[in-house]
Design a protein around this nucleic acid. Structure first.
Length: 108
DNA sequence: ATGATGATTGGGG
DNA sequence: CCCCAATCATCAT
């Protein structure tokens, strides 16, 4: 696998500050990085480079839908993401929606 | 260097 | 619910 770009390193570092039991969104992450494009953040997480050192499963979409995992937006991988989050104490509906907005982490 | 792509988002019909 | 434009790091030519 290719070497991580500086941008990726920053994404991972920031993501690691999200505590267990909380999630964040692509948009918020992007904002915390000073990047105006949440899609760019998605790009950085696409391959899940340092799992599970980097908790890429704690990142969901701004509308509180499940988002993607391991390079996919739907399918078995996503089901696994939901399980992971539940095991960390996140409350999700069966179709993968965050039920408690209080569990979104606000970067300080 | 140039053009296409994506784990997004917000606004509109 | 579906469709569209804006935005930007990567990837493929």
């Amino acid at each position: 696998m290719p070497l991580p770009t500086p941008f990726q390193n920053r994404v991972y570092a920031t993501l690691c500050t999200v505590p267990r039991g909380y999630v964040t969104t692509y948009g918020r992450l992007a904002a915390a990085l000073g990047c105006g494009s949440p899609r760019a953040v998605g790009m950085a997480l696409r391959h899940n480079p340092f799992a599970p050192r980097v908790p890429c499963h704690r990142v969901i979409a701004a509308d509180l839908s499940i988002g993607g995992f391991n390079g996919q937006t739907s399918g078995p991988e996503i089901a696994r993401k939901i399980n992971l989050l539940r095991s960390e104490g996140i409350t999700l509906s069966d179709d993968g929606h965050l039920l408690d907005p209080a569990q979104v982490w606000d970067f300080e």
